[in-house]
Design a protein around this nucleic acid. Sequence first.
DNA 1: CCATCTTTGTGCACGCGTTCACAAAGGCAT
DNA 2: ATGCCTTTGTGAACGCGTGCACAAAGATGG
Lengths: 258, 258
Amino acid sequence: MATGRTHRPATRSRGIPEATVARLPLYLRALTALSERSVPTVSSEELASAAGVNSAKLRKDFSYLGSYGTRGVGYDVEYLVYQISRELGLTQDWPVVIVGIGNLGAALANYGGFASRGFRVAALIDADPAMSGKPVAGIAVQHADELEKIISDNGVSIGVIATPAGSAQQVCERLVAAGVTSILNFAPTVLTVPDGVDVRKVDLSIELQILAFHEQRKAGEEAPPEEETAPPVAPPAATVKKRTDPGSDGDVPAVMPA
Amino acid sequence: MATGRTHRPATRSRGIPEATVARLPLYLRALTALSERSVPTVSSEELASAAGVNSAKLRKDFSYLGSYGTRGVGYDVEYLVYQISRELGLTQDWPVVIVGIGNLGAALANYGGFASRGFRVAALIDADPAMSGKPVAGIAVQHADELEKIISDNGVSIGVIATPAGSAQQVCERLVAAGVTSILNFAPTVLTVPDGVDVRKVDLSIELQILAFHEQRKAGEEAPPEEETAPPVAPPAATVKKRTDPGSDGDVPAVMPA
DNA sequence: CCATCTTTGTGCACGCGTTCACAAAGGCAT
DNA sequence: ATGCCTTTGTGAACGCGTGCACAAAGATGG
């Protein structure tokens, strides 16, 4: 499998760690900014600072791509921009469909970062017939019935799901069946997909909850340690009273009354 | 610091690994769904499947919170919902401000997942005077001048930045100066903050780029390995021609012409 | 042409996170 | 009351990612 250097288990090109791949867009953004300012070269230290990582990590990341730097000088900005773009597959055109043109879907359609970097919004799709034909971000919304045809005609392999949670899995299945192999999911659901399909998840609510955890931790640091060993609610009894509570708060966390 | 069991270096409550914290909201969501269906108990296997993780990981995660399960039975759904909610700090009310009411900010204001789980949108703030007073998601947008007062009056400690990249750092500094200690950043920039302030970043463009990488990898698997050792562009020469290219494509990746 | 100085590329060690596999614990049936 | 059966909780091993620290590489000045 490996072509030349066999001192590493995986082939160079295929062996880029996930963590590194996730940082490449960061580097690319910092480099693009430098490129716009016509900065010819940059050191690992400067670039790392601009990207918000430390320089050792950056150098190691770049080492997975190859030896693109010049010792004593640094990295050629334009050259590195090209190399990273190529590695990420941004030198080609990626048609993308956005399914679910609610508030979020519309925001995504208008989002500049989508259109740049090789991504092209091929279509906006919504299940609501009232949306059909309505222009959003300069593109007419099409009905969900057209989904399969749109994907097939445009050779779409990346789909963005911005529907309510209830429809996400169904939309996902239709996308996959139509040929989509990468999905960016904004719906708060776990998507089940066959092997070979990549799903990335962006969950606004989860990020906030993580922040709340740390915020609480900060607040609790000054205060004395509250009694956390004594559960303020009934411990799991052997026989649990089946709570028949149909009208529970829906998505609101069910905080048990003390 | 530790009360009883001292066989672990960190205190139990404080020693929850980051990776575990990041999964707690997932578990909480799955548990909430079960709670709504009045399911009394759930096994680690079932819950793990619903949350999209494996059961060993889930059990280990829960073990950091305490021994909340019953062997041979599983976990009490309601009890666990409460415990996780408490651990995440969701049993208290978190007022949140959203700064930058463009397409994305409006989408966030309307996002149901925000309002639920203890988060309350205390204010929407925008720098555009034309936006002031305009209702979004039922809340009147306020001008950026009011930022400090709003934060102070409402005791806001969590801020969401949905401004353009250019204003993000400045907004961030004002938020921090006014007392905000947790920031959720949607602007495509690296934010610099003082110690003690948490920043989480959601970057739509980065997620798409990561997908593109894997997509390219999939596509390249069938095709024979392209010559990747021969750089198709000029390698970094000793003396780099300073490219004076003022009108470079802005945010579009600068693909060097061959 | 040589010495010096800067900066890269990377071997190595460490720590965190994941996964396995199993003993302990408790319910349940008889 | 006793034994069986299910499921938790966790010790231990493994692998990945991170950061240190330094040798190699190359530019630059004399």
